[in-house]
Structure formats: structure tokens, C-alpha cells
Nucleic acid binder design. Structure first.
Lengths: 243, 243
DNA sequence: GAGTGGTCTAGACCACATG
DNA sequence: ATGTGGTCTAGACCACTCC
């Protein structure tokens, strides 16, 4: 439940856009009217609008108004950015997901690993390799390194489900920023061995560096995915505000 | 040249992070100190910090301060989100880029095309298919549809370079929001015919819907890329502010 | 000129971290 | 208790669009 004023406004407007109260290409009430309607300051209204713009729901036009640009006819307009989680994917495609832990070990970062992961050389890391399957077909692998000191008590059983569920739930850790790079590259021998590539010789790769709320980098993950499943969505706003 | 106060602060702080004045993992001066230093209101300082956080440069911690989380040792920390443009890619990999226009025609959107592109059925569209090559090797194709009425005078010659240069430069159009989806999928016969796939049987695909500053959708593009070149970067912030 | 969004200020109160 | 960031307000002025 949102407590902040701007969050309440954000959710209300978002819902009204989704249910068609404010349809695609229409204009929202003016900021002055919204300020009146919600009985708050203009700043709070503007903050809510700013988040909606980041979501790709609306776009402001100086002198004219705030226009709805979410087209319900387009599937891509899901409203959220980022990679589909494995479970969302399973839901969408209607298959039964499963995870297998192939590697779970402690390692110390040498120079090469430090270069790749961004952890300092000599860091104690927990190395995890998992495969994920859909109805028995292995469609992706996740290779992760966690800063061991930050994930005390992590066990293979926790990893079988979601590491994040353990970090955020059991450990009470708060996640901050995550930086991701997506590429498509040649399938390695290991990919062919572990995944059911169905003849494909290339894979989608997402590499991510994750920081906790204290700004400490706690995770590096390389997720490799069989073509045909991988899906990533993003909304970009022209950097008029940052130029 | 930035005119707004928050933009000036943003650029100054950004530069000081990049040149090591505020190194990785250090804390910026407090908001109160920055307010003093820049002789402005706290709001302007906070707005600059907010953009830096979106860029993945800093992360705030209530009660503690604002921490620098940009690690210059990681290539991925380039500071900007989004897909590398073809020319940036050429620069990074050191090859000579070239573009060939394969199709340039006017079409009317039927139901099927409307479904894919998001344009209304019956719209007059300019259909463009281009191949892009590196030192003679064709590594990607871009298939675009533009709302013809919005791109008057567009010619194959303009398209040979950058369509955006024509839109923003010659036409003075302002681009607004862009929504993108990235997938990896099977290479089609057309892919194999047009691109030098070097034996690869999968391609990276980016589909994008672009809106102009008036909120009108003007472009749909499907960019298909040979594995090994495609690169996309993004910074995600935990949605504490939007939950 | 009237209405819209874009920027900025000055000040207030709250939640959290640290000593 | 002090300092930090998080939220909010009330009001001001500017730039742009449209009549």
C-alpha cells in the first residue's frame, strides 16, 4: 500500500489509464486540475506524472498538456521495464518451470574473475551455476557470483528457488541499483552440453551487476538463454532533461 | 550548453565522478553542502542527483549520504542506457560502416501490419529496409515503417545515412518516448539471404515504437542483428519509489 | 491574454543512521 | 542529539500553445 501522496496519485492515474478512463492519445486533466482533485501541491502531481512518463504511460507537452501514449493494443506496452523473470516467462508460455543447481561452491576471485565480475581480486565469492527448464527442456543457465560475506547462510536449497527471495525475505536485504548488458553471442560447448539448444548455435546473454541498498556490489550474474524465449523490454525517454 | 540550474549541477557532478574527484564507493558532499556550494535550492540539487541515480552513477542512502557506484574498471558502466548506435559500434570495433537501402516504398497498413506495428489500419506508411555492413560484411538489417505524413520529403539518400539526422536536423522534429523490446530468435531465410550470418542460425532482434514530442507514434522499427555485435545496456533502479 | 507545462525557491516535517 | 536523505507545501516566474 502506497503511503506517499505522489504514489497514491501515480497508482490512481495509472489504473485510470489502464481501464480506459484516459484512453490512448487523450490528454490527462491539467496539472492545476489534478492538484485540485487530489487536494495536494502541484509538486506531488508532477512527481506522479514523472514516474508515469518513465513507465511509458504518458508524455508531457509544454503549453498543451499531458498525453496518454500507452497503447493497450500493443503487447509490449506492459508498463514495466526489464527482463521477464523465469517465472513470468513460465506463466506467459504456460509451462512448468524447474531449476537445477549444478554448482555451489566457495571461490576466491583471481585477477581474471575480478575483471569479469567487477569484484576486487581476492574477494571471497559464492559461485552458483543453475539450469532452468520448461517442461523438462533446459532453456537457460544462470551463473552467479555473490560476495560471500553478504549472503551468510545461503544454501543450495535456497538457490533452487529464488536467490532474491532469500536475500530480500530471509535476510532482509534491500536491493538497490542493477546494471545490465545484453548481447547475443556464439553458443559455447558448455551451453550445448547443459542446455537443450535444439540446434541453435547462438544464445542471448544478460550480464548484470547488482548493488545492495548500501551501494555495495553483491552479485554478478551471467544468464545465457536459448533463442525463442528471451524477452526484454524498456522505455527510453529522449534526454531533453539531461542534455 | 545546459541552462537549467539542475543540469549544470548534474554535469558538474558527473564530470567529477568521471575524473575521480569523487571515486567509486565514496560519498558525495551532503545535499546541504551541495546546496551551499552551488548557491541554489535543495530541490535543484536533488533533481541533479536523481538523474545521476538514473544513470547508475550514484545511489542514495537515507540517513547516510549519496554514494558513488560507478566503477570505472567495468566497461559496462558507460553511463548511458540503450542500444549502441551502428556508428558507435563501428567506432568501438574499428571497422568501416556502410548502409544499403534495399527497399523504399509507400504502403498502406492492412490489419496484419497494423497489429505488428501499432499503426492504425489504413495508415499511409513509408516502408524502408536497410542492411548495415562492417568492412563489407552485412551484420544487421533494419526494417522501418514511418507515418508518411510525418516525414515529408524523406528520400532514399536521407535514409542512407541516419533517418534521425533528417528528422531532427532537416525537419526539426522532436523525438519523445521510445519503447523497445529485445528478443533472440531463429534466423529466417531472409536473414540468411541478406546478412552474412557466418553459419549462425539465430539473430538478436530489437523492435521499437517511437513517438514524437507531440505524442504521435511515428516509427516502428525491427532491427535484426548477427550474433557477436549486438550490445544493449541498461541501469535499473529498485522501484522503491513506485511500489 | 489565458492556459499549459518547466523550473526554481524557501521552508517545513518525517524517517533513518550514527554517535 | 545531530546530520542525512525523503516527502511535501505554497508560491513565483518563465516558455510555449492556442485563441
Amino acid at each position: 500500500m502506497p503511503k506517499a501522496v505522489f504514489q497514491t496519485i501515480y497508482h490512481d492515474l495509472k489504473q485510470k489509464i489502464e481501464n480506459g478512463t484516459y484512453p490512448y492519445q487523450s490528454f490527462l486533466p491539467s496539472e492545476a486540475e489534478l492538484t485540485q482533485a487530489y487536494g495536494c501541491s502541484r509538486s506531488s502531481v508532477r512527481r506522479a506524472l514523472s514516474v508515469l512518463a518513465t513507465d511509458g504511460y504518458v508524455q508531457s507537452q509544454q503549453g498543451k498538456g499531458v498525453r496518454v501514449i500507452r497503447n493497450p493494443a500493443l503487447i509490449d506496452a506492459s508498463g514495466y521495464n526489464g527482463l521477464e523473470t523465469f517465472n513470468e516467462l513460465a506463466e506467459r508460455c504456460g509451462f512448468t518451470p524447474a531449476t537445477h543447481v549444478l554448482v555451489f561452491e566457495e571461490v576466491e576471485a583471481d585477477e581474471a574473475l575480478a575483471d569479469v565480475t567487477g569484484f576486487a581480486a581476492g574477494s571471497k565469492l559464492t559461485h552458483i551455476l543453475r539450469s532452468r527448464s520448461a517442461d523438462g527442456t533446459v532453456i537457460s543457465t544462470d551463473e552467479s557470483y555473490y560476495l560471500s560475506d553478504e549472503v551468510p547462510g545461503l544454501s543450495p536449497a535456497d538457490v533452487e528457488n529464488s536467490v532474491y527471495a532469500y536475500l530480500e525475505g530471509t535476510l532482509g536485504m534491500k536491493i538497490g541499483t542493477s546494471k545490465r548488458t545484453i548481447t547475443v553471442d556464439v553458443a559455447t560447448e558448455a551451453d550445448k552440453r547443459i542446455m537443450d539448444l535444439d540446434g541453435f548455435n547462438a544464445v542471448g546473454i544478460m550480464r548484470s551487476h547488482t548493488f545492495d541498498a548500501d551501494g555495495v556490489m553483491i552479485e554478478y550474474t551471467e544468464s545465457r538463454q536459448r533463442p525463442g524465449f528471451f524477452s526484454y523490454h524498456e522505455t527510453a525517454i529522449r534526454p531533453s532533461a539531461l542534455a
